[in-house]
Amino acid sequence: MTDKDSGFEPDHNVSHFAVGKEPIITIEDLNKWFGDFHALKNINLQVAERERVVICGPSGSGKSTLIRCINHLDVFQKGRIVVDGNELTNVARNVDAIRAEVGMVFQQFNLFPHLTVLQNCMLAPMRVRGKSKAEASQTAMKFLERVRIPEQASKYPAELSGGQQQRVAIARALCMSPKIMLFDEPTSALDPEMVREVLDTMVALADEGMTMLCVTHEMGFARSVADRVIFMTAGEIVVDTPPLEFFDSPDNPRLREFLGQILHN
């Protein structure tokens, strides 16, 4: 499959200038422990509206934990996170409100197996946004067309391939019209031949100006789509720089080692 097949014509040079200045996510002195394990150490990070940030690093470096803190799937002990002007607290109502504005795509897709593809996409808009059935179904079909699987709408997730399931998961998140999309290793559980269709969908989303935080080891995606690439080890952000410097002149020895390892594979 090529970019042309996907119907999207990415032009990263133009969209790069569209990046806004207002931070939509602000993370200050974030610290998280799992028992004795210090998983995140003094994380400071700002993400501007329409910005595309790729986070990578060795396993156990805290990259998934970091983005899972943004929608409170993981709780942090110290520091603060402000999403679109709302500070994240432990109050369920506040957490649910922020989650409604932040879409998330998981490594394991996590589609609801007892619901059809269409129902998967309609559930949250109806329950959270109070949309009517007709409205929710119309929005769902619109996004299923965007991820190019409208014909699967009445099937159950188990009848779909991994790549298709992940595209449904992206559509399901988009149906809530989120302001930010978080991707937690979205292609890591896919068979190699299905990685491309999911990446194409993500590229298209980036081109539309979606604010994106992606934890991924797809370095081709990082190079062509990201505004910034972040490298984490042992719970710390050690490199945060545009992709050009990140890949072409990495001055951090741990990053050089990491790139050497994953680019060889």
Binding site: N71, A97, A100, F112, A124, M176
Partner: peptide, 21 residues
Amino acid sequence: RGQTEAAAALGLSYHHRMRDV
């Protein structure tokens, strides 16, 4: 666990996470 997490990430309240998912 991924089911509850996915439901939570969509902003569904505890009530709807339990009832619908």
